[in-house]
């Protein structure tokens, strides 16, 4: 109940400040099982991408959040897990780090993933980490949807206290799949390119 109210407030404030218009360019908002993967430049990314999904999809879509930040205090954990429906990922966890993600996918739910692993300040995303590939291999039927978030790097750069109000757009691209004989670096490069191609004519 409280979590729902906070979620509504949080979404309201985020939309007021940075808009977050959703543009379904390569797919439509279907309830099928998906992994949305996007470029990562601010703490608002998670909220904004989640807010861009229709409400029924939000219930079964879990953002992946870093445990070392979002698990820090009871408050952080409450916002991440109860309000945003997030799954916590231990970035230092080594081989088993992906287990909570796999559990979520086994339940038939969807994930929101930032494969760069950390926020960065450029317009184009940095290199992707391997987790996306491992999940794609383990769950070949799940659709992998590239997402590009505009403007967030300058609306809410690292270290800023308040976001500057700049309209941001969430662009959803066409789903990709990992080929049977495709190797990890090739797949990650292709996934990276899929996100970059959505940046298109948008000015940074």
């Amino acid at each position: 109940m409280i979590a729902e109210i906070i979620a509504t407030l949080l979404l309201g404030v985020t939309r007021f400040l940075v808009g977050g218009h959703a543009r379904w360019q390569g797919c439509s908002p279907d309830p099928g099982q998906r992994i949305y993967f996007a470029n990562h430049s601010s703490h608002l990314d998670t909220i904004l991408l989640w807010a861009a999904l229709p409400r029924p999809l939000r219930r079964t879509t879990h953002p992946v959040a870093a445990k070392d930040y979002w698990g820090k205090t009871a408050f952080h954990r409450f916002i991440a897990v109860r309000v945003l429906n997030a799954v916590l990922l231990d970035r230092e966890g080594g081989r088993d780090a992906l287990d909570p993600l796999k559990e979520t996918l086994e339940q038939g739910h969807s994930l929101i993933l930032f494969p760069e692993g950390t926020r960065q300040s450029e317009r184009m995303p940095g290199p992707f980490k391997g987790g996306l590939f491992a999940l794609a291999r383990a769950f070949p039927t799940v659709e992998l949807v590239p997402v590009y978030l505009t403007n967030l790097a300058r609306a809410y750069p690292k270290g800023a206290i308040l976001p500057a109000p700049i309209s941001c757009i969430v662009t959803f691209g066409a789903p990709i799949t990992a080929g049977d004989d495709e190797r990890k670096p090739q797949f990650l490069a292709r996934a990276h390119k899929a996100v970059c191609s959505l940046a298109g004519g948008e000015r940074s």
Binding site: G19, A153, R154, P157, A164, I166, S204
Partner: peptide
Amino acid sequence: ISITPTRA
């Protein structure tokens, strides 16, 4: 500002 190229 959204369509003006400001920087981080």
